[in-house]
Simulated scan of single mutants.
Amino acid sequence: MMNLKNHLLFVVSTSCLFFSCKGNGDKKEMHALKSKSLAGTYKLIDSKTIKGKDTVTAFTDSSKTEMFKMFNDDHFSFFNHDKEKGKGKEPLFVAGGGTYSFDGVKYQESLQYCSIRDWERNTFNFQLKIKGDTLIQTGVENLPELGVHHTIVETYLKVR
């Protein structure tokens, strides 16, 4: 009878140990899949800004400007510049970065650094869709103190 109790105790203990390890592994694996699916460099191929009934489309002419967005496990950065090296009619350079969280759909940026300094220390909530090499970011940028309240829809293509 004692052997049966010891055997049952061993089976129960081993099962608990197995399931507790498996749970942690699943969480790490799930985080790795989310990070891995987002990690990389993406080039902006289309951008829409919607304010009220007006929609402004940008980046349809990539001969003048280009923008890249990069992700690692928990940080993002972006760089946007004109291709005339600031010497054309409309010189442009905007860069920023910070931390992010992503649960597979909901994406939140905490912008720590930005060349447009008034945007720093703000958090933005978006939805991300990843379809193959395409990433689509949609959400509201709301900074009432700057008079900013619009919806953005940005489409990126992963750089290989």
Rank of each mutant, 00 (worst) to 15 (best):
L4E: 13
N6T: 08
H7G: 13
H7D: 14
F10A: 14
S13M: 11
F18Y: 06
S20Q: 01
S20C: 06
S20F: 07
K22M: 15
M30S: 14
A32G: 03
A39F: 05
T41Y: 07
T41L: 07
Y42C: 04
L44P: 04
I45L: 09
I45E: 12
I45D: 07
I50Q: 09
K53Y: 03
K53V: 11
T55D: 00
T60D: 06
S63P: 05
K64I: 11
T65P: 02
E66P: 01
K69Q: 14
F71A: 05
F71R: 02
H75A: 10
F76I: 03
S77I: 13
F79C: 00
N80M: 05
N80H: 06
H81Q: 10
K87Y: 06
K87I: 13
G88Y: 10
G88R: 10
P91H: 07
P91T: 03
F93W: 02
G96N: 02
S101G: 10
S101Y: 04
D103G: 09
G104Q: 11
G104I: 06
K106S: 15
Y107K: 09
S110D: 04
S115W: 08
D118V: 10
N122R: 07
N122A: 01
T123F: 05
T123M: 01
N125A: 13
F126L: 02
K129T: 15
I130C: 00
G132C: 08
T134K: 08
I136E: 07
Q137G: 05
T138M: 03
G139N: 01
V140P: 00
N142S: 15
N142K: 14
H149I: 01
H150C: 10
I152V: 11
E154P: 06
Y156F: 15
V159L: 10
R160W: 03
